[in-house]
């Protein structure tokens, strides 16, 4: 069998396919490299200042730290430091509460919650104030300047509001927490509903 010679139309079609692939490659290279081009809508705030989100209002009321953490179920010792936060949250739409938390340290590294860090919420019906406890283990050298990010969807944070809270941690605070010998107690307030 002889291989037939391609005619002009076939050659033209081949050239168009190659050109389309080249254009696709150029477009791909121009797209952002971040794993999630569709990101959350970040609503920034600071310690003790309420932020209004699509699904509720959130305020970080208290930040603390130390090498040891005591919760209602466990006592944990960190090779770095534990940083804890108390969060007031009032749902406005549905009975939802923060289910996803990440800590962005002072060097911009993202600490995911995993199963050792703490995010525990008591959330009631819309309009009724609830409370959350948060704790992350952090490298002390990068703790100053950390931000806490919270949102309601644990599996997918894209395309919805996310609170990003500047915890206001200073190097002096970090030094105090490193010298601390007592555990940081992280317990639900007695009046939390």
């Amino acid at each position: 069998m002889r291989v037939p010679r391609p005619n002009r139309a076939q050659l033209g079609a081949g050239a168009l396919v190659l050109a389309a692939l080249s254009v696709g490659r150029v477009v791909t290279e121009w797209l952002p490299e971040d794993p999630s081009p569709v990101r959350a809508f970040e609503r920034t705030t600071t310690l003790d200042r309420e932020v209004h989100l699509r699904y509720g209002n959130l305020r970080v009321t208290e930040v603390d730290g130390g090498k040891q953490l005591a919760t209602s179920t466990s006592a944990m010792l960190s090779p770095g430091l534990w940083v804890t936060a108390h969060v007031d949250f009032t749902p406005t739409v549905d009975k939802v509460g923060p289910a996803y938390a990440e800590l962005r340290d002072g060097e911009g590294r993202v600490l995911t919650r995993g199963s050792r860090n703490v995010l525990e919420c008591k959330v009631i019906n819309p309009g009724i104030s609830g409370h959350c406890l948060v704790a992350f283990e952090v490298d002390p050298t990068a703790l100053a300047g950390s931000h806490l990010a919270l949102t309601v969807n644990v599996n997918d944070q894209r395309g919805d509001d996310m609170a990003v809270v500047d915890l206001g941690i200073t190097p002096a605070q970090v030094a105090t927490w490193k010298a601390r010998t007592t555990p940081v107690e992280l317990l639900m307030p007695k009046d939390a509903t």
Partner: peptide
């Protein structure tokens, strides 16, 4: 305690 995610900068 059970280990979770490994934080950057900690051993």
């Amino acid at each position: 305690e059970r280990m979770g995610d490994l934080a950057p900068g900690l051993t």
